Simulated assay, not measured.
Amino acid sequence: MSLQEYYEDSYNMERGRGASDLLHEVTTYSKGLFNLVTESKDRFLPNLDWNGLKVLETGAGRGGVGLLLARLGADVTLVDFSPTALDQAKNIFALEGFEVKTVVGDVTHPDLELNQKYDLIVDSHLLHCLTEDPDRASYYRLITDHLAPNGIFVAETMVHRKKLFIPDGFMFDERNVLWQMFGKWTPVRRILDSLDLERELNEAHFNIVYFYYYGQYGFVPHRSFMDIPAEILPAAVRMVLQNKVS
């Protein structure tokens, strides 16, 4: 089973759940990232109003962050490779009277059509799910191609720490890729060292305007890690990027 098939199956299993139940779940889960996004916008785009702000949420799933931003007046587009997740997102948005734009597609494919630029692009915990260097490079190109002048890319991603616990059913290789057994070993997370991540972003020609390592924060890669102490889980980096001015 591929990672894409795994996520699609997961969303399909919850087709019977009501949109109101999913609404509470996605907004609760998304509040931490939402707070980072609003603080970043207020700091780095202070002259732009939320009303009508062009926002893209990548790896959106059911669009929890996007919904919270729509409540502020933002014009939100969701992109995800799961049509089931985006269908559920439309139902959730409709509960509050929003008609959200959705794009079914893989952000690592160069033929993904978005047809506009965005003031704010939010990575909804997608970056660490991209385990291969070419896929990550394609994703970065998508971001740089679709950021408006002075626009910002906001992300929170898991990073490596010296002590990292790996439970049964998972393995961690020398490329900092976490693998999970789905009948066969499947790469599920790329957990770079924070210095390697910073180097990667510079090579992708981003201007790093904020980059902070949260060593006290434990990032849970999968529910199998839920009961593991924070100090032996992946740490987190929160970052804000812009395109470099040529």
Rank of each mutant, 00 (worst) to 15 (best):
L36F: 11
A85H: 03
E156V: 14
I121A: 01
N176F: 12
Y7E: 14
M158H: 09
S224E: 15
D135F: 07
F219T: 06
P83Q: 05
D133A: 15
V37N: 00
V100D: 00
A19C: 07
P46N: 05
G73E: 04
G105H: 04
S138R: 15
G151M: 08
L22W: 10
S194N: 09
D123V: 00
N35S: 15
L53D: 01
S224H: 15
I121F: 08
E99F: 04
R15S: 12
E14L: 09
Q4K: 14
D193W: 13
D119E: 06
D133K: 13
Q116E: 08
K117S: 06
L192P: 04
H205E: 09
I232L: 04
D106Q: 05
R141M: 07
T131L: 03
E203A: 01
A70L: 08
A137H: 15
P234G: 10
D49K: 10
S20Y: 15
A94E: 02
E156L: 09
I92T: 02
L195E: 14
K90T: 02
E132C: 07
H222P: 14
Y11A: 10
P221G: 06
V37P: 00
S124C: 11
T84Y: 04
Y217F: 10
R161V: 02
E5H: 10
M158S: 08
E57A: 07
K90I: 01
L72P: 15
G16T: 09
D123I: 00
E174F: 08
E198D: 08
A230F: 09
D227T: 08
E5L: 12
L95A: 12
L114D: 05
G105F: 02
N176Y: 11
F206A: 02
G52L: 04
T157C: 15
L48R: 07
F98C: 06
L22N: 13
F211H: 03
F172L: 06
I121N: 03
L192A: 10
L147V: 02
L72A: 11
G105I: 04
I228G: 11
E25S: 10
I191F: 06
Y213G: 03
E132D: 09
K244D: 09
Y118T: 01
D80Q: 05
T28M: 01
L120W: 01
A60I: 08
S224Y: 14
G105V: 02
N51Q: 13
L86K: 03
A204Y: 07
L95K: 13
Y6P: 11
N202K: 07
F182S: 08
G215H: 12
F211R: 04
V177R: 00
Y11R: 07
V107C: 00
G169P: 10
I92R: 01
Q242H: 14
S224G: 13
D111I: 00
C129A: 07
A89F: 01
Y210G: 11
R17G: 08
D75I: 06
G32H: 13
L201N: 02
R71P: 09
G73Q: 05
H128I: 10
K54Y: 09
D21Y: 14
L53R: 03
